[in-house]
């Protein structure tokens, strides 16, 4: 709230009046006090000796990790291939299912704002609020351990993400183009194909590649709960304290993620 005060014929302008300024100072003071109090609470429950020891421990672990066990690399080809497949197939499933969900969730294309849209929005929220690791945990008990559980987990997790971004893209389209196609006497389906699809296609491709890139990273950990891929090997190596193997796997994962990010950036650049 800005304030103008007239003082001796001069109009003095300040960004805020005195009360607003005071309120802001009080808020900062309260926030700082809260922070100090919380730090106190955490500090009481922390064994500081361990924390001061951390650099030495980290150094020790690092020392045990080098050199990476390069001999194992041949055995990692298959798990990393599984991981990439989990990410890719999961993304494909998600993208296919996300299209109708997004169509139903977008205010301007939904068949019914009162009935269908809330259902679509619930699907999106449900899918997004459950982490893929939790999806995988549940699916391992349902369909058994392995790559299949991983694919479904990634798929279910990604529907919400893809559908949300896609329906936002649909809501942002230029209605003028849609109106123009409708004015020619086109049917509803034709209006979608000519008026809407061309407008959201770049967003759709960008979202798919972006999610694929995220899924590569997410699928590397799915093995921890038995859903296949390199995470399975990683978990085994950690529990057996084979740190030289762990370091190699981490290097392989980093390499894969870098490649996937590069591909995704290239594809997105090509589309836009």
């Amino acid at each position: 709230m800005m304030s103008v005060v007239v003082k001796g014929g001069l109009k003095i302008w300040q960004r805020r009046d005195r009360n607003a300024q005071l309120a802001i100072w009080v808020s900062w003071l309260a926030a700082t006090a809260l922070f100090v109090y919380c730090f106190q609470l955490i500090s009481e429950k922390t064994i500081w000796a361990f924390v001061w020891d951390a650099p030495a421990q980290a150094g020790d672990l690092a020392a045990r990790m080098v050199p990476p066990d390069w001999g194992l690399i041949r055995h990692l080809a298959r798990p990393i291939w599984d991981t990439i497949n989990i990410a890719t197939l999961g993304t494909v499933i998600a993208v296919i299912l996300a299209v109708p969900v997004a169509y139903c969730a977008a205010r301007n294309t939904t068949p019914s704002v009162t009935l269908v849209r809330p259902v679509a929005l619930f699907i999106i929220v449900a899918s997004r609020s459950i982490n893929s690791l939790i999806w995988a945990l549940m699916l391992v008990t349902i369909v058994g351990p392995g790559v299949f559980a991983g694919i479904i987990a990634i798929g279910l997790r990604s529907i919400g993400f893809c559908a949300k971004l896609l329906y936002e893209a649909i809501e942002e389209i230029d209605e003028g183009q849609v109106e123009a196609v409708r004015a020619t006497g086109a049917t509803g389906a034709q209006v979608s194909v000519y008026g809407i699809v061309p407008q959201v296609l770049p967003a759709f491709a960008g979202i798919s590649v972006f999610r694929w890139d995220i899924n590569i990273r997410e699928s590397t950990v799915l093995g921890l709960v038995g859903a296949g891929g390199i995470g399975l090997e990683l978990n085994a190596a950690i529990t057996q304290l084979h740190w030289t193997q762990v370091s190699l796997m981490l290097l392989v994962i980093i390499g894969t993620v870098i490649v996937s990010e590069w591909v995704s950036a290239k594809v997105r650049h090509a589309i836009i």
């Binding site: 230029d174 003028g176 183009q177 109106e179 123009a180 196609v181 004015a183 020619t184 006497g185 086109a186 049917t187 389906a189 034709q190 194909v193 000519y194 008026g195 061309p198 407008q199 296609l201 770049p202």
Partner: peptide, 28 residues
């Protein structure tokens, strides 16, 4: 109908835009 901001489908070609005038006459 002819529009103020042209209302062409921006990402389609000129030909596709012109042919979209025939949408009422062709099947999906």
């Amino acid at each position: 109908m002819i529009f103020q901001e042209y209302a062409l489908v921006e990402r389609l070609t000129v030909m596709e835009n012109v042919l979209s005038g025939r949408l009422g006459y062709v099947g999906f």
